[in-house]
């Protein structure tokens, strides 16, 4: 019977180093600056409103993925975690999307929601 060695260090060796962490911190900062850039470009009329929203959403999704994959170690960790996180996260996204479509695309009854 193989004895169970409780190596707590087990999953560290394939983890990123502090250098990587700081590098990702810099990338996240740059992405945030780009997001703000998108907002500014919309303010001064370079971007159409829809374009800015799209660009900002994509950038924010990239930041989301970076933090979850690296800082929360999902990229290096057991797939079980990915499962228990991804299912509700996908549900939440779908719920937001469904209500957005019901209200802003299909234009629900009741109140009329126009941008004031």
């Amino acid at each position: 019977m193989t004895s169970e060695t409780h190596e707590v260090e087990h999953d560290i060796h394939d983890h990123p180093t502090n250098r990587t962490y700081i590098l990702i911190g810099i990338v996240l900062t740059v992405l945030t600056l780009l997001e703000i850039g998108g907002y500014v470009l919309e303010e001064n009329g370079t971007f159409a409103p829809g374009t800015a929203a799209l660009v900002i959403s994509v950038l924010s999704a990239a930041k989301f993925i970076l933090v979850v994959m690296f800082y929360m170690h999902l990229k290096f960790d057991s797939r079980v975690f990915t499962g228990v996180f991804l299912f509700p996260a996908a549900l939440a996204t779908l719920a937001i999307a469904a209500l957005f479509v019901l209200y802003h695309v299909l234009g629900q009854q009741g109140n009329t929601y126009k941008l004031i």
Binding site: L94, L102, L106, G107, Q108, Q109
Partner: peptide, 18 residues
């Protein structure tokens, strides 16, 4: 079961697509 909730609300008039 997650994709059927509005069948409780047919009477509210969600429009033909929904």
């Amino acid at each position: 079961g997650w994709g059927v909730w509005s069948h409780h609300q047919f009477a509210v008039g969600l429009g033909p697509i929904a």
